[in-house]
Each structure stands twice: as structure tokens, then as C-alpha cells.
Nucleic acid binder design. Structure first.
Lengths: 211, 211
DNA sequence: TTTTTTCTACTGGTTTTCGGGTATTTTTTC
DNA sequence: GAAAAAATACCCGAAAACCAGTAGAAAAAA
């Protein structure tokens, strides 16, 4: 156990949340809330200068995306531990956060004790997830397991126009190519998404957030 | 100004938020946080008995929906002022909350002062919205202005099957009716959504949250 | 009970999509 | 510079969707 307290920085766009975290963390433990920010940029500058131990980082920020901020912080100050604190339960958001170097991920409904456990764990070099997040990571849906098809630029254009209800000839007209070309693109889209008609295609594409 | 303080009850599933609200509201103003709950049911029972002045109500609750809880509270204790405190910026969620009798709606990124203003306003009989909410209510998108078509039970069934990529004959088979009947339903769906083909239909239906 | 809505079914014809191929040119990537 | 990927284009036939109209039975609402 080191003599100095763990320095913690809070980054969250909700002042309510910041107050809550301060209140939950202040009760005589060996950590010190060095600063708190509602914006990403000033937080980044402060972190680069002061090099705190742990950052409680929200994903929704007014100026920049929390996932990008995470990557930037990890690049600038790799030894800083980042604990994501968000409401997002989507598996791919959690994965993006980890990809960006986060040391842990917790939902905002966490208890004060859970929070302290998380901070202690990441400070100790562990990767920490709250209970619900463990569940989400461990139980991917059938949909989440099959990979999102990689579409070419042209295919994305055609897909968007198909979803707008345009017919093959209309699309051909818009893109100044032969309708036969568009039919080929459509056939390839069906193949890539493993579907048999437009209805399924549009549904599959929306689920993969192409639309 | 009455001699007794305004009694406030907080209902939110996040202990962080509860702590934050307590911290922001406790600083020597004329209000008193009577109780706080992370669940709807115990909150409802308490409110029915103690009849507090103002309730800060979240929409996401573990046991019941905040919108339904609002309606129930207003039915049981109509004089109680309900101030919705949520992250939802969707116009139709706000509208549902108002429909259910809420006296105000604020986003969780509100400041301490904004919170106090809101509580004072609803206690004074006003309907209060934070700045962003005023914007959202006042600026409906083109999509939000056109009403959602009312579908019959059968049409909903057909729509769901169409979205699954089923063909007319397959649907007819599943519902044990003539394919010609299904074609009529499809035609009616196209008319109600004002679309010209399945692609548009599926898109329109997903936007209206039918799928 | 009357009226309205919903569900059902049909005729007949046009347009569009879908599935199986093949193949050349252009652009990227290695 | 060679190889791979993407975009282009074509043929053919079958299946499905789309359009316009009509209309009777059943269920729900007035």
C-alpha cells in the first residue's frame, strides 16, 4: 500500500453524476478526487499534465466521443487506468471501449462499493467489469456473433437507395450506370447479408447500422 | 412562502444519481429530501402514504416503467407534482410523460440551479421544461409531425412476416388464408404508410417502432 | 340494430425482383 | 508488374411484387 492516495479524475457531462460520484467516493477512503470535467478537451489537457492514477470516463460527452478520448489518453499517458462508466449495454460499444484501451467498464447503476472495488482493481492492474457487463460480454446474441459484412463503396450507395424504395432502374439512373449493373450489386448485397429479398435486406442492414 | 419546507422524493435506479441530487439540493434551501427509491413499487406506496410535494422521477426503473408510475401516482395523489428527470430526448417519450400527467421534464445534464428552478416552478403550479426540452418540443421533425398509421391486428401480423422476408404465399400459408387476401393486406399497408414497395415499408415501419 | 371497420377473396395485367450464369474493364493492393 | 478486388455489363427465365378495381362475410362500434 503506497503512502499517497490514488488520484481520481471524473469526466462526465452530467453534474448530477459528478456530485454523486464525489459523494460516494469521498467517505474516508484512500483516494482523492483530483478534478472533474464535463468536457473532454480540458480533461485531456489536465490528464496530460497531472497524470492521475484513475479516470472515471463517461462515453457521452458534449465535445468529443468518450471512446476516442480514451484512445487519446492511452496514447498520451499509457500508465493511466481508465474505467469506463456508462449507461450503454450494447456489446459492441463495450468492445470498442476495450479496443481503445479501457481498463474496465461499469454501468452507472453501480453501488458505491462496486465503484470502490472497480477503482481498486484497475489500480491493481486488473481489467474490471461490473456484474452486468460480465453477463453481456459472456452472452453474445446469435446476431452479435456473426460478423458484419464488409461492403464496397458502391454497394453502400446502392443499399441506401434500395432502402429509400428506389427501383433498380431508378438507381441505375441516379448512379449513371446500366440497370444490369445495379442488379449485380443487389445480388451481391443479398449474398453478403445472406438474405433472399429486399425486406430481409433492409432489416439486416438496419440491425448492422448500415441504415 | 409557507413555513414548512417543500418535501421532495427522488426515484431513480442509479444510486450515483440519487447521491448527486441529494448533494446538489441539500445546500440550505427550503426543501427537504424526504426519501429516495431505486424501485417504483416501494416509491408508490410511500408516496400514497406520505403525500410529498414534489417527485423527481426517472423513466428507467427496474420494476416498472416511469411513465406508467407517473400515471399511477397522479391517479392516487393528484396534487403531487411530478418532475420527470431523464436522459431521453425523444419527443414521443416526453409527450407520453406529459400525457401521463407530469408537471415538468428535465434532462439529467441539468445544473443544480436549474434543478432548483424546476422544483420551484412545479411547486408553484407551472409546467416546467429545461432549455433543451423546450427546443425538442418546439422543433418537431417532419417525421414526428406525420402521424403514425393505425394498423389492425392482422396488418401487424402481415407486416411482421413481410419484414422477416416471407413471401406472400408463405404468409398466406402461415395465417391459413388465401394469398390474394395477403396481397390486399400488403396493399393496405402500403397505402397507410404511403410507400411504394417493401423496402420503403420496412424502413417506415422501423422508424415508427413497429419492428 | 344499424353502421362502420376489418378480414376475406377475386380478376386481370404490369413491373420488378430474384437466381443462375458469364465476362470485360478499372482500380487497389501486394 | 502481377494478382486480387471492385465495378461494370450482359442473357434468360421464373417468381414475386405491385396496381386498380370490386365485393361479400364477419366482427366491432355506434
Amino acid at each position: 500500500m503506497s503512502i499517497s492516495k490514488i488520484s481520481v479524475v471524473i469526466v462526465d457531462d452530467h453534474s448530477i453524476v459528478i456530485e454523486g460520484l464525489k459523494s460516494l467516493l469521498e467517505h474516508g477512503h484512500n483516494l482523492d478526487i483530483t478534478a472533474h470535467f464535463t468536457m473532454g478537451k480540458p480533461a485531456f489537457e489536465f490528464i496530460g499534465k497531472e497524470r492521475p492514477d484513475v479516470i472515471l470516463l463517461d462515453i457521452n460527452l458534449p465535445d468529443i466521443n468518450g471512446i476516442d478520448l480514451c484512445r487519446q489518453i492511452k496514447e498520451a499517458v499509457p500508465e493511466t487506468k481508465i474505467l469506463a462508466l456508462s449507461n450503454y449495454t450494447e456489446r459492441n460499444i463495450i468492445m470498442q471501449m476495450l479496443q481503445s484501451g479501457a481498463n474496465g467498464y461499469m454501468l452507472k447503476n453501480i453501488s458505491g462499493q462496486g465503484l470502490l472495488n472497480g477503482i481498486a482493481a484497475v489500480q491493481n492492474g486488473e481489467i474490471y467489469f461490473s456484474r452486468e457487463i460480465n453477463e453481456i460480454i459472456g452472452n453474445p446474441s446469435r446476431f452479435e456473433l456473426k460478423e458484419v459484412p464488409r461492403l464496397t463503396k458502391r454497394e453502400k450507395q446502392v443499399l441506401a437507395l434500395v432502402a429509400e424504395g428506389k427501383t433498380t432502374t431508378e438507381i441505375a439512373d441516379i448512379l449513371h450506370v446500366s440497370p444490369l449493373t445495379i442488379e449485380t450489386h443487389r445480388r451481391n448485397l443479398h449474398y453478403k447479408f445472406q438474405v433472399r429479398n429486399v425486406a430481409e435486406l433492409v432489416m439486416a442492414a438496419t440491425k448492422c447500422q448500415f441504415l
